[in-house]
Design a protein around this nucleic acid. Sequence first.
RNA 1: GCCGAAGUGGCGGAACGGUAUACGCGGCGGUCUCAAAAACCGCUGGAGGCAGACUCCUUGUGGGUUCGAAUCCCACCUUCGGCACCA
Length: 826
Amino acid sequence: MAGRRFRGAIMTEKYIPQTIEARWQKRWEETRLYHVDDDVPNPYFFLTMFPYPSGDLHIGHWYAYTPSDARARYLRMKGYDVMLPIGFDAFGLPAENAAIKHGIHPYQWTMRNIERMRQQLRSMGAMWDWEREVVTCQPEYYRWTQWFFLQFYKHGLAYRTRSAVDWCPNCNTTLAREQVWGEDRHCERCGTPVTKKELEQWYLRITRYAEELLRHDGINWPERVVTMQRNWIGRSEGAELIFRSEQGDDIVVFTTRPDTVYGATFMVLAPEHPLVNRLTTPDRRAAVEEYVAAAQRRTEIERLAVEKDKTGVFIGAYAINPANGERIPIWIADYVLMGYGTGAIMGVPAHDERDFAFAKEYGLPIPVVIRPPDWNGEPLTEAYTGEGPMVNSGPFDGMNSREGIKAVTAYLEARGLGRPAVTYRLRDWLISRQRYWGAPIPIIYCPQCGTVPVPEEDLPVLLPEDAEFLPTGESPLKYHEGFRRTTCPQCGGPAERETDTMDTFICSSWYQMRYVSPHYDKGPFDPKAARVWLPVKQYTGGIEHACMHLLYTRFFTKACRDMGLLDHDEPMLNLFNQGIVLGEDNEKMSKSRGNVVNPDDYVRTLGADAVRAYLMFIGPWELGGSWNSRGIEGISRFLNRVWGLVLDPTPRQGSATGEERERRIAEVWRATHKTIRTCTEHMEGFRFNVYIAALMEYTNTLLRLREAGLGGTEAWSEAIRTLVLLLAPITPHLAEELWERIGGAYSVHQQRWPEWDERLAADEMITLVVQVNGKVRDRLQVPADIAADDAKALALASAGAKRHMDGKTVRDVIYVSGKLVNIVVR
RNA sequence: GCCGAAGUGGCGGAACGGUAUACGCGGCGGUCUCAAAAACCGCUGGAGGCAGACUCCUUGUGGGUUCGAAUCCCACCUUCGGCACCA
């Protein structure tokens, strides 16, 4: 024992986290402790969303990475060959903005940050296999990002089209629908409200997978994420009906209520609808054009702001209601959106709130075709959107509207005027970005041959290093002649490259595949390694990616499967979303609030293990919690107590002998096996906070039992070994150091997870709770294996119970084995 | 408006049909010290009671189911997220 006598007590060497942490990090790396090969018997791919190399590791990174590391370490001790990789999502705007602001090249800026972050990440003491690191901005990576684009293009899953798209005026680029958030339609990245621009852009056909993306079969994801994705995809079942204009054009509308078609008294087209121009009559043209122009000028925010008032213009044309042959006017109004359904609706004012408001505004008739309950034929004061018997609906009168939906659709389908249809809210994924720092879209435009994909053997299309970064709001690639001008791979004539780059969410849609063989150069991944590791068994990360990254990567996986690249349907089988760490003031950490906690400061003073353990102790992982500087000191005290306990079994005063000693030894065994059981259960459930609480309790118990002087007994040695093993996932450095000091073989992280024996964990005596009518009236110490009748008899005789049974009749006595007796009296 | 999550001591939280408040923080008292800090030990939901015994109250609110409810069911309130003129 390394220690010296001092004032009668053994003073063990002090716990100095900084020294032992640095030492073990070095040793782990030198011995390649965390490297896993592909020929392992029990592969387990554990992944946490990789970071953007912003240049500084904040508390959020620690909160994402250290609990997941603890879980991965546990699985490893359970016998899995865990692959826990790390890398960098390295393309993106901040690098380019730094280039504009500080004149440093995005590549330099990014690689410098990565170098710095590698050091900070290492300080966490996580079991990452750095040999598998991926960096998405390096040509050996983005070559395959481009390759994927080409496969999507070949299979008809990538296309280019012109339309009104979301534009972030601050980021100076277009965004995908998923990347525009909130009521004020702001940019997900920078918070600036977006505007609309009419542009020709590249899209990936994610909508082709809408139906399959709605199903989360075979994966265990939080209900929250599943619901968010379902809402986002927004499936609506109904029918497409054809209203023929008097000029003979078919106007297709989508409706979820074909049963109400007899009540359609007008039609509304979106102002941008392609038929508007053709159908508008000369006398209405001026008014229509004015309205269309006004609608275009209006941002989405303004359109939202005028939600209550419906506006619109009659275009002079009429259409025929396909159900009853009636002639109904065609209007345009901006409450009908070109981007949803067919951009045209039938107006059924009696049974749709928006149509009702519109009809009221413009004096259009509101005939009832679904009878509301208790309706006497008077005009409606508001739309009735419920079910009911159909009326004024020709052959369908009397039919319930629920059946009417199918019946009317079939009736119109038979006449060639409709068919059942499903519409989704999900749009195709806009992937063009008007920025430099991303993977160039590998497409060439040839005046002779048109749109020509870059041949696979010519990949990667490299980003030119000498681009000029000016705050013009346009991609430097557009003005880089050397990049832009090229020759057509088909005809050899002069041609131009696409100058937009890809959304960085493409890079992260397939990074899990790259980790299985990060340096493979015959494809994006080695199929052999992919069969070993994919799909990811456990994925963890923030909920903010529910409808972006997590949807995109599912789409990628399904598309890859259909292209014959993968043989599984889902990228990640299990998902866990951690919460957010708030500042000491319970507010979100931000520089402007001045409540930012710098983890490096605490690593320096209290050690990485204390930071890790504290973050896991703060509360349930999925809920996050507030930082508390006193709280982490409490954890630090705990680790110091553990240190002293493990290294010094000497009682502070006296020790137990004889029977007393035997009782203490039994207590040690019991505490040990109970703790293994509790901790294992909590680790299985990601309940790190209670896991640590159980370890604290165990430590407190052992500190008390140390006074019995049990050093040298088998029970004590086992208890100490167990404590260190259970500590290993949470505080890997401290556990490794203690493991070595108690004579364990390197490494503690290669030990088997301890198992518990129910018999050893079982109590000899229990506290039997005595209730009268459900209220606790007494507590009795009884043997754990007490017979039911004995327990009942003891309870009935107990002083506490008697006090409350006075003069009352016992109606029933309920015994819950090993727990309580409830005496029911009246 | 629709969908989801959450409301428990002074604070973070535990228990999720059977001892409410584990564990930690804070507070109070003590040991050590000339003193303080650190460390360690004890007490700590509220009310009544001099105190122990004991009694009553307490898991957002109000009902219900049950021998027994923080836990299950119904209604409501609050907070936080997502969606929202989606036809």
